[in-house]
């Protein structure tokens, strides 16, 4: 399957370009929306957690930035997964009428969401720069580890996207189920809080075992908090990423032959 994707790399690149172009076609700001969306989000959090709700004291950096650094990879994952649930049925005419390897479509979904994620990153960095100028935080060398953290996210999300896209063809309920599962996982993952904020130790243990926890923690540690992740965190993150990638590839290749007929 990897070989087939490599052979189709030209097509994938063109399709990702098409996705990005088609997304904001006809809107006034066009491509700027990729930057404006996260910027607005950051602005809203800043207002809310500066003047409306007092920010929790456990967080050492400005809380809006803390939230934002957790939300960015989460939005990448949830957006890609929600699209994955419909990508093959949406491209059904192509699968049925043109000879086209089905793995192309989930890959395009993954990559176009990755591009959006990478476009939102500068907003986070700009926010951090503002905070640093105000003396609220400082940049750390761990920022250089960011590509590794993003790489783990891509593996993890990629595997899930493959599995979801193939399963959603046969089990149409998956799309609705996914919304709810994603909601649950969102609150089970320390995105809008830190594990230390949880008063009940049993619940804290559940959160620590949530598969996304190491990935979110790792990402936020290197990009924002300036903490060097320990070996156990790296191990957990890599384990989740590789596990997801392998499982997703397995599920997809098992169902591959049935996709064109059922999509």
């Amino acid at each position: 399957m990897v070989a087939s994707l490599y052979r189709q790399r030209g097509l994938i690149a063109v399709l990702v370009g098409r996705d990005l172009k088609a997304r904001y076609r006809g809107t006034f700001f066009g491509f700027l929306w990729s930057l404006l969306n996260p910027l607005m989000l950051l602005a809203v959090y800043t207002v809310v957690f500066t003047w409306v709700i007092p920010a929790p004291r456990q967080v050492v950096v400005p809380f809006p930035l803390f939230l934002f650094a957790g939300l960015l990879p989460w939005l990448f994952a949830s957006g890609a997964l929600l699209d994955a649930a419909v990508v093959l049925p949406d491209n059904g005419p192509l699968l049925k009428k043109v000879v086209c390897p089905p793995e192309v479509f989930p890959t395009v979904t993954l990559l176009s969401h990755l591009v959006h994620h990478l476009l939102a990153l500068p907003i986070l960095l700009a926010g951090m720069a503002v905070a640093a100028v105000l003396g609220l935080m400082s940049f750390s060398w761990t920022l250089l580890l960011l590509p590794l953290a993003v790489g783990l996210w891509v593996l993890a999300v990629g595997g899930a996207v493959l599995a979801v896209s193939a399963l959603a063809v046969h089990f149409r309920d998956l799309k609705d189920l996914l919304h709810n599962v994603l909601n649950l996982v969102f609150f089970l993952t320390p995105i809008i809080y830190t594990p230390e904020m949880i008063p009940v130790p049993a619940l804290r243990r559940v959160i620590e075992w949530s598969p996304l926890t190491p990935l979110v923690t790792l990402y936020r540690d290197v990009v924002l908090l300036g903490r060097e992740p320990g070996p156990s965190l790296w191990l957990a993150g890599t384990g989740v990423a590789l596990g997801s990638a392998l499982l997703g590839t397995f599920v997809f290749s098992r169902l591959r032959e049935t996709l064109a007929e059922a999509a």
Binding site: G10, L11, V14, L15, R18, K21, A22, R25, G26, N91, P93, L94, K96, K97, V98, V99, C100
Partner: peptide
């Protein structure tokens, strides 16, 4: 396969870009 002409044309992008994508899908 000319089974359905223009299968997979994306309505929002131009004919030129669609021709490119379609041609690449056809190999």
């Amino acid at each position: 396969a000319l089974i359905e002409l223009g299968a997979g044309f994306h309505p929002e992008i131009s004919g030129r870009e669609n021709a490119l994508v379609n041609g690449m899908m056809l190999g």
